[in-house]
């Protein structure tokens, strides 16, 4: 995907105040990592959404092929025993 000025695309991940993981927030254009972080701050944290930002060049992300969806994901559907719902969890165990 080309842009009129050639700024590459970046993916933005934000960790919210109470969150323990960074979640995908969206994407943006920036010339380099420093600009990407500043832009991410301006675009995706202006309503107090986050306390930490990751930016990743979009072309560094390797994605699964949508055509592989059935092959990759359907076989898991009838294997309910893989969910840990058949065990009782100790109360001390958080973030499950």
């Amino acid at each position: 995907m080309t842009h009129k000025k050639g700024y590459p695309l970046w993916e933005v991940f934000i960790r919210s105040n109470r969150g323990i993981d960074h979640k995908h927030a969206g994407s943006l254009r920036a010339a380099d990592a420093e600009m990407a972080l500043q832009n991410a701050r301006d675009l995706y944290t202006r309503r107090s959404e986050g306390v930490s930002i990751w930016v990743v060049p979009s072309n560094q992300i390797v994605a699964s092929d949508p055509d592989d969806k059935e092959t990759l994901f359907d076989p898991a559907e009838d294997k309910v025993y893989r969910h840990p719902t058949f065990y009782s969890l100790p109360d001390e165990l958080e973030h499950m």
Partner: peptide, 11 residues
């Protein structure tokens, strides 16, 4: 000059 900077300046 860029959508991102547009928001940056107005922020």
């Amino acid at each position: 000059p860029e959508l991102e900077e547009d928001i940056g300046l107005t922020n």
